[in-house]
């Protein structure tokens, strides 16, 4: 029997994006060691890395985040098994201890949204902020250019 889960999805609404970059700032802070904006940006070594990217072209701008694909190429191409779908949340997550930093997932990601950590030891990616009800990027977007929607998805029961 298929099992379904309610899954967080971050919806991009480019019409409301003013390219302020706050999503990136707060993503960085949320994924820093200290979770303190000053320390995160000024003191931490290695510097924390944002998992969201802002893009613009002429009048258009938007944030790009991991889409937690239903068919995640990063998971299928991972050499170690570090990249996987979480059995409960269905999010695509990386086990940073297992990751060796081969970067095969980076070239496999159609969104180009996986990045190396500050030390280039392992990959980092959007984890939908497991410690927060609402992901930091969404929570701090002043304009609802990023919104949280809940999706019903079938849980993949086999991969890991």
């Amino acid at each position: 029997m298929p099992v379904y889960t309610e899954m967080k999805k971050i919806q991009i609404n480019e019409d409301f994006c003013v390219n302020c970059g706050l999503c990136k700032v707060y993503c960085t802070v949320e994924h820093s060691q200290t979770k303190d904006i000053i320390k995160a940006f000024k003191r931490e070594n290695p510097a924390p890395v944002p998992r969201v990217r802002t893009e613009s072209n002429g009048d258009i701008s938007f944030a790009v985040l991991c889409q937690h694909c239903a068919e995640p190429w990063c998971v299928y191409s991972c050499l170690t098994g570090a990249m996987h779908k979480d059995l409960e949340s269905n999010a695509v997550v990386v086990d940073e201890d297992k990751c060796v930093g081969c970067w095969t997932c980076i070239i496999s990601c159609p969104y180009g949204i996986l990045t190396r950590d500050g030390d280039h030891r392992h990959v980092v990616k959007c984890d939908l902020c497991p410690d927060r009800e609402i992901p930091a990027c969404v929570d701090n977007c002043p304009n609802e250019a990023l919104t949280l929607v809940m999706d019903i998805e079938e849980v993949c029961q086999t991969v890991i």
């Binding site: 970067w103 980076i106 070239i107 496999s108 180009g112 990045t115």
Partner: peptide, 14 residues
Amino acid sequence: IFAGAIEQSGILFD
């Protein structure tokens, strides 16, 4: 081929 800055390579590969 991307060396050094490799993050955007995935978009091209796709």
